[in-house]
Design a protein around this nucleic acid. Structure first.
Lengths: 239, 239
DNA sequence: CATTATTACTGAGGATGCCTCATTTGTAAA
DNA sequence: TTTACAAATGAGGCATCCTCAGTAATAATG
């Protein structure tokens, strides 16, 4: 009885994952408005009506897709950061990971601006997005505890500088057809260093070392990114 | 003949402005998807079909609304800046103006993320948005000419820091129900100063003076903001 | 002023796509 | 095999965008 129920649950969740993946692809390809529910159903190998057993309507399906996306990002970001590194190295890794993710999954990012318009509370961010940005908070907080970062003003302001800059930069890079960072990250980290770094560091920071080091870590970050991207790759499928 | 045509043109453009204003209000109230074309038509005192004589479809109408919005913002921003002030004062005024505009017209900002999905080029920013951000470029460029700003790396990177930070901050403030800035602007300007200000300023900058001064300019900035908002206020109208 | 030509506007109806629900299919228990 | 229950289906209802044949308003002409 219990084992059976467990299997059912698994089956249900597996189907749901398949639906979300299919929807993710169709949304990304055709845009939210261009994506027809019947197409998403076909892409998932199901009938249209079946979608509504898993998600109340198109908006909720979109919310699920976007939620899954940020949830994956969170997992990848946690892999991309090494707690034993100096704080600003961690921030640089996080920035690098984030910018690459924004660039390589631009369509999903765009969709994020369309969540939560289903009545109820006027505007509220997705839980998964809040969980994601909390990674930045954690790095900075640890940095303060370690004495590497000044416990300056409001944390959220630094968070907005960090993610705001990276997202706008990603858009600019995308617009210019670039798929790679051009020193945006270095610029941003230098900026944060200027204002946040402790006056008298225990280990006197060698600035050049950080930049040189980052090349070494690049592969590692890209690995984390690719591992989470695999989850979204299209299975063999056709209508 | 020619005079008549001129009058026609005027009449056409007046109607079009009325349509865009009506659409602007209905979109903001009900959301893009919630806004029905027939409601917009009624709000403009017209029949549904008439809208299509002025804009090919709902998407294009939205584009026009958003374009008008940024065009108004540009006019306001140019009023908010005084070229004779020091460069960083101008940047502070621009930041202050921008943040307040984002906060007070949040719905319009949200809509901006929904332009340009009408086939053709994959992604392209609205002309009016590009014109708007060029104000920042102009201030910085003048600052470089005057020798107040270091001709550092890529201008666009600073632009993305500036607008990215302000937009994300606006979202955070909105989410917390605040309608007023809490030092975000000061923080951002201090940051830019650290990295962009010329090492040996002609007039040695008194940092406190800048902050104190800004209170004086606040009224002026809010004026500029309100003058452009009036253009969007609902005329007496009902269905 | 009457008549005609031209332009602007209208709103019923076609087309499309979201969503419901009566029916069918699959699966587990008796 | 039969019965009970859960899962899936897809035709059709419904709402909304958009078109277009017809109407009203305006300008040109006699």
């Amino acid at each position: 009885m219990t084992t059976v129920k467990a299997t059912k649950r698994e089956k249900f969740e597996a189907r749901d994952t398949a639906i979300i993946e299919a929807a993710s692809r169709v949304f990304a390809e055709r845009g939210v408005d261009g994506a027809k529910m019947v197409d998403i159903a076909k892409a998932a190998g199901l009938a249209e009506g079946t979608l509504y057993l898993y998600h109340r309507n198109k908006q909720e399906l979109l919310n699920a897709v976007v939620g899954q996306f940020w949830s994956n990002l969170t997992a990848g970001a946690e892999q991309a950061i090494n707690h034993s590194q100096p704080t600003f190295q961690q921030l640089q890794d996080l920035a690098s990971y984030h910018l690459n993710a924004m660039l390589s999954q631009f369509e999903l990012v765009q969709m994020s601006y369309r969540v939560g318009n289903t009545g109820s509370v006027p505007e509220q961010d997705l839980v998964q997005i809040r969980a994601y940005v909390r990674i930045f908070d954690a790095v900075v907080t640890r940095g303060i505890d370690r004495g590497e970062i000044k416990p300056a003003i409001e944390l959220w302001q630094w968070r907005d500088i960090f993610y705001g800059t990276l997202e706008f930069s990603a858009r600019t890079l995308k617009l210019r057809g670039k798929h790679q960072d051009d020193g945006v990250v270095n610029n941003l980290i230098a900026l944060l260093r200027n204002s946040l770094q402790m006056a008298a560091p225990q280990k006197p920071q060698n600035r050049d070392a950080t930049a040189a080091d980052s090349t070494g870590r690049h592969a590692e970050i890209m690995n984390a990114l690719h591992s989470i991207q695999k989850q979204l790759e299209p299975p063999v499928q056709d209508g």
